[in-house]
């Protein structure tokens, strides 16, 4: 994602209690409480923790090892408009809520339905004919007027 690797953390109710990564440098735990989902990441001798809502777009979270922080995902993905990509097929596969095409920029945003994790959406898109390129999207920082 945006030139770097991130670890996608579990979201939603009923997700696995722990998604332990085999790497020796990082360990990830994610589990539900009554109202929240807790995420605990151990990386290079430090422990990072976060909690997210069980449902909804704010439940989508990744851990960015390079920046040592959690980051929130948008409930949409970016699909590259190369190789005659079939946006209709992508929309059907994902049951997309909306698609905004930016021809001049060479990509489209595909808004995902509730419950479909962007990581799963990216995998589904990549499995379509022609293996279209797709990526998750991070929430960007807030802006201010100056």
């Amino acid at each position: 994602m945006e030139g770097r690797q991130v670890i996608v953390l579990a979201s939603g109710t009923g997700s696995p209690e722990s998604a332990a990564y085999p790497s020796g440098t990082i360990a990830v735990q994610s589990y539900e409480t009554a109202t929240r989902r807790k995420h605990i990441v151990s990386f290079k001798g430090r422990t990072y923790s976060a909690s997210t809502p069980l449902e909804g777009p704010w439940s989508l979270v990744v851990f960015d090892p390079a920046r040592r922080r959690f980051a929130s995902l948008l409930p949409s993905i970016r699909v590259e408009l190369v190789g005659g990509v079939d946006l209709k097929a992508i929309a059907e596969t994902l049951d997309a809520v909306d698609i905004t095409v930016f021809d001049s920029l060479g990509f489209a945003y595909v808004d995902l339905p509730n419950g479909l994790h962007p990581a799963d959406a990216v995998d589904r898109v990549r499995n379509l004919n022609g293996a279209p390129r797709a990526a998750m999207r991070l929430r960007r920082p807030r802006i201010e007027w100056r």
């Binding site: 945006e2 030139g3 970016r78 990526a135």
Partner: peptide, 18 residues
């Protein structure tokens, strides 16, 4: 006349392409 309030981060790829 706007900007980001966040700590050090690099720009979004979409913004670069824009």
């Amino acid at each position: 006349s706007f900007g980001s309030v966040a700590q050090s981060e690099n720009p979004a790829e979409e913004f670069v392409r824009l």
